[in-house]
Every structure is written in structure tokens, then in C-alpha cells.
Amino acid sequence: MNVQFKKGVLDLCVLALTAWEDRYGYELAVAISSKFEMAVGSVYPLLNRLTVEGYFSTYLRESPEGPPRKYYKLTPLGHSHLMELVSEWNTFTRAVNELIKDGVEQ
């Protein structure tokens, strides 16, 4: 996939995954890397940055399989940031789709 495309929307995708439920790092890393052909290891610095910026808070929760896992939870700030990004994304893709329709599929 085009590198420039995916870099712009990674934040949006990570935040979107946590919109309804808290997730642990591994889960997010695997989900993102399988969709975007990106090294799993790069997702963690991204999660860290979003946490530092106040969009995520983290906590430890017991897991049935073993020791506790670190969960990422969307903060109110993160939630409003996500909503902003989603509406920007929608405006953007609508415009692009219209142009594609006019230009390519006439």
C-alpha cells in the first residue's frame, strides 16, 4: 500500500479500534499491522505517543491466560480527537471519491 496514504491515517485507525472497548497493546499492534503491512514494533511507539499526548490512558488488567496485560483506554480528549479525525476523513474521502468518479469512471 502507498506509504504516504497509510502514515496519515494511522492515528485515526488506532483510536478507532479503541472507540468502544479498551484493548491491550498486542491486540492493537497485530490488528494494525495486518491491515497496513507495517512492522508490529512500530505500533508501540505510536501507542506511546498517543498516550503522552493524552489521547490514551493505560492500566493493567488480569488476563485468564496469565500475568496482567497493559490496556489502552480512550480518554475524553482522545474521543473528541477521534471524532474530529473521522469527520475530516469523511470530508476528504468524499471529495476524492467524487474526483475519481468524474475523472476515471465516466
Binding site: 498486542y26 499491522s33 512500530s42 496469565g66 497493559k70
Partner: peptide, 24 residues
């Protein structure tokens, strides 16, 4: 996060090599 990654990858039945490779 990285310690967790190796641990959870092992729980999913992946080897340490695989886990390290996908981390980069």
C-alpha cells in the same frame, strides 16, 4: 509493551524468533 508482546505472542503459540521478527 515489548515484554508483553513476547509473552502474549508465546500465548498465541508463536516462537520468540517470529515475535522478534514482526517487531522489527
Amino acid at each position: 509493551d515489548y515484554e508483553d508482546h513476547f509473552r502474549i505472542a508465546a500465548e498465541h503459540g508463536r516462537s520468540e524468533e517470529e515475535a522478534a521478527r514482526e517487531l522489527g
